[in-house]
Amino acid sequence: MSWVNAVVQGILLGGLYALFACGLSLMFGVMKVVNLAHGDFAVLAAYLALVIVSGFEVPILWSVLLVAPLFGLVGYVVQRFIIQRSLDVSPLTTLLVTFGLSIVIQNALLEAASANSESLQSGILASGSFQVAGLHVGYLSVLIFVTATAVIVGLQLFLSRTSLGRQLRAASDDQETASSVGVNVRHVFGVAAGIAFGTVALAGVAFGMYSSFDPAAGPQRLIFAFEAVVIGGMGSLWGTLLGGIVLGLAQVLGSQIDPGFGVLAGHIVFLAVLAFRPSGLIPQVAQAAQ
């Protein structure tokens, strides 16, 4: 019985990781950039939500309406003025610069808040659950999983159906030609980063409701997100959902074997995928809209 329960919990946890990972996946798929401060921005979003919730006494879900668009703006600015600029130096510089940014954000949070862990109290949403076939399923996990799926479907539709999505795919294929047929490459990359950061904000708030966080929590969030993206296959959004689920399953089933083994089990699955199937479970093919 508990194994069935673990599988269900693992899949639901996978939704959280997928929500975390889709911003990373989008930015890698379009700009070939990995933002090493991804996790720290998520933690920053959680702190921001905390400030809004306690300052204005609004429900958490309302705070998302403020934090996500704000992060969209932050993403655009970070892309244009930090990531793009470092890309112009070299791709390795982007890694170093975003890593530096990660350290700066962590310590700024440490300075502004404290090392204590915080959490976003969402009342009944966090504690409530319903029973299906004898399994207890939390409202929050289901909400997060549904959100993750919705975000991925939305991103997929955006990429395949809108003019901006078309411009993004073109710029991702061939920046120079894209600009010579009228695409403002730097602007659309900024927009892509803005969208990615919007999802980071969602993920940060979701994680804040799901478990506690502190200023140093970012790197682990980044690692989980990256593991989900790589396990699923870089640049494929559906692969990212699958990768999140595989990671969630590995962690929950690992904990089932031994409480201290969960995260390590996830790492082992990730390293095994890198060693034996580096293109991931769903390798990216030329993603023409069907």
């Binding site: 890698f28 090493l36 690692i223 990256f226 201290g260 390590l264 580096p278």
Partner: peptide
């Protein structure tokens, strides 16, 4: 090195990081 060296860029960076994390978790146990 046989796992990480055929990786590049961010893959290499994060894979080495995960190796370090795995060592830490192993020592904890």
């Amino acid at each position: 090195s046989f796992i990480v060296l055929h990786l590049r860029g961010a893959y290499f960076a994060i894979a080495t990081w995960v190796v370090a994390e795995s060592f830490r978790l192993a020592v904890l146990r």
